[in-house]
Design a protein around this nucleic acid. Sequence first.
DNA 1: ACTGATAGTTTGCCTGACGCGAACAAATGG
DNA 2: CCATTTGTTCGCGTCAGGCAAACTATCAGT
Lengths: 152, 152
Amino acid sequence: MADESSPGKARLIADIMGAQKRLQDLIAEDRADPLFSSHLTLSQLKILMLLARHGSVSGSELAGMLGIGAATLTGMIDRLVVQDLVARAEDPHDRRVRRIALTRAGRDLIGSIFNAGEARMRTLLSRLSAEELDLIAQATTLIIKAAESSEA
Amino acid sequence: MADESSPGKARLIADIMGAQKRLQDLIAEDRADPLFSSHLTLSQLKILMLLARHGSVSGSELAGMLGIGAATLTGMIDRLVVQDLVARAEDPHDRRVRRIALTRAGRDLIGSIFNAGEARMRTLLSRLSAEELDLIAQATTLIIKAAESSEA
DNA sequence: ACTGATAGTTTGCCTGACGCGAACAAATGG
DNA sequence: CCATTTGTTCGCGTCAGGCAAACTATCAGT
């Protein structure tokens, strides 16, 4: 399909992707635990993710992102408020709008799902030597730089 | 809290974890897309994940894993069969049991959610040089070895 | 000050996914 | 031949989401 440059690169990339996939499978179990024990709905999770990304949004904005009506959103937010995952606050510039944002518990929950496997990875790294960690740190730095240059 | 060995290790680990978290945030968007557009329920996702892990299981086994009754499971599997995500097959050893397994489409869906960001990572790696890729390949090999030794 | 538009809530109503127990058919294994 | 196990069907209930319509409060323009 594609070996534009050197032939060794394709093999290296394949090796790296295989390893990455194995790591994903490992932390998938950690991710599933808080997700399934939270008794959240996928729609509710979507709301929490949107709030985690955008911070504080108005109801109409959120309804627009979700593609649902304002009436439906009211009920969904109500249920999340009862669970203390989001909170409504008055907008200082417009007293009609009620800004919706994550509570501390909501942020923690989303964090525990998204950054799953953090504990596992940490104990895993702690078993390696300083030299090995240095190598890994260089590698991650390379990846992050490449990611940032492509996002910009 | 913990700096048992050399002080440099703690800093290296912190750097690596920070980079890892940034990468997780990036592929989170890729993961959310197939998840939310699939119109799955969290319970349905749980079933698909269990089937992906265990391969083919009987109804009673699956109901036991989920903590629900057999009657409930029948309906849930029915809905997944309609979506062509799982299929029922006869067990050659016991004609009472109908073994439940993922279909090709079900495997693809789970794969697209679990191995999210694969395409993004691949194009990202393709921009790096062979030397940089070699470094990353060494790093991932180290991590995988550490993970395997801890799992064993 | 009036008036039209906008934000959010409430109400009533519907659909679909899950959950159960009970009853049942089919197959197993004594 | 009979108790057990597996899975399905049936009837029933609950809850999350979805809408339209009516309503209140507020804003913004004239």
